[in-house]
Design a protein around this nucleic acid. Structure first.
Lengths: 142, 142
DNA sequence: GCCCAAGTGATAACAGTTACCAAAACCGAA
DNA sequence: TTCGGTTTTGGTAACTGTTATCACTTGGGC
């Protein structure tokens, strides 16, 4: 398992903590927050520090090993799935889901200049209602 | 000028503070943070409280009068332009720009159900380099 | 095994945002 | 126009998520 990215800089070591964090975040499909990763990892490394979790989530996302999502709702979330896909955020409960790339194809605009910006990446961010919230809303509002 | 949205709830009053906040945020094109709105508004209402600014930005976006942007970079930003358009965020300096809807057309997926989510809105979030950062990067990295 | 830069744990500090509450302002009704 | 009750405000404390700091530890090339 390698994590070293393409940036020049200090050599990364695969410490026990970093390895477990990466394994745990790749194991789940629910876009956990740093706090949730902390809880998951603590089951295997009970003495790990929250700071270590934050530090490594930061490093791993900078290396491209995981994705850092900033979709509002007060806290950042992380995604072990780095293949291209979009995200949807439930406006009620904040749950985040994956939308396959081919559900809404989008031209690759990398390198194009628009409105004075040289575009690099692009991603669609959907809002919506998850199954659970859609159901409970019908019960209330018809 | 009306702000009352479609949600049922307490009647909104158009206070002096709320009016100025809405005017100022609609006047500019640079997606200000709450802090920047505070500075703008204080030129006209020197005694306004930061809490009032936050409160009203929240209310106005809930009413649909402005947009609340959560694109990372540590702080929320607001947009007085509510017509459909996309956003690009400079990965270097955090500056946010508008990308016209027709620069990257996208089917309206509202009402469609994908992966257990009932989709509502969608927006493309680009990353890129603003003119200024692209220029300074060339100077360093060729 | 030795070395030392990279990483850790514990905790303080920090930034942005929200909660609280007494005083003030808005606005429909009288 | 004044009144009355509800909404809103200003000032500030509290809170939340995240980052910085630093002495100690550890991974991994030699």
């Amino acid at each position: 398992m390698t994590v070293q990215g393409t940036q020049s800089g200090p050599r990364l070591r695969m410490t026990r903590q970093r390895k477990v964090i990466l394994e745990e975040i790749r194991r789940v499909r629910n876009h956990p927050s740093a706090d949730q990763v902390y809880l998951m990892v603590r089951k295997r490394l009970p003495h790990i520090s929250l700071a270590t979790v934050y530090r490594n989530l930061d490093i791993l996302s900078a290396e491209g090993a995981i994705l850092k999502l900033e979709m509002g709702g007060g806290q950042r979330r992380y995604d072990g799935e780095t293949c291209a896909h979009h995200h949807v955020r439930c406006v009620r409960c904040g749950r985040i889901g994956d939308i396959p790339e081919d559900a809404c194809p989008l031209p690759d605009m990398a390198g194009v200049e628009v409105e004075g910006f040289l575009l690099l990446t692009r991603q669609i961010e959907f809002t919506g209602l998850c199954r659970h919230c859609a159901a409970s809303r019908e019960a209330v509002a018809g």
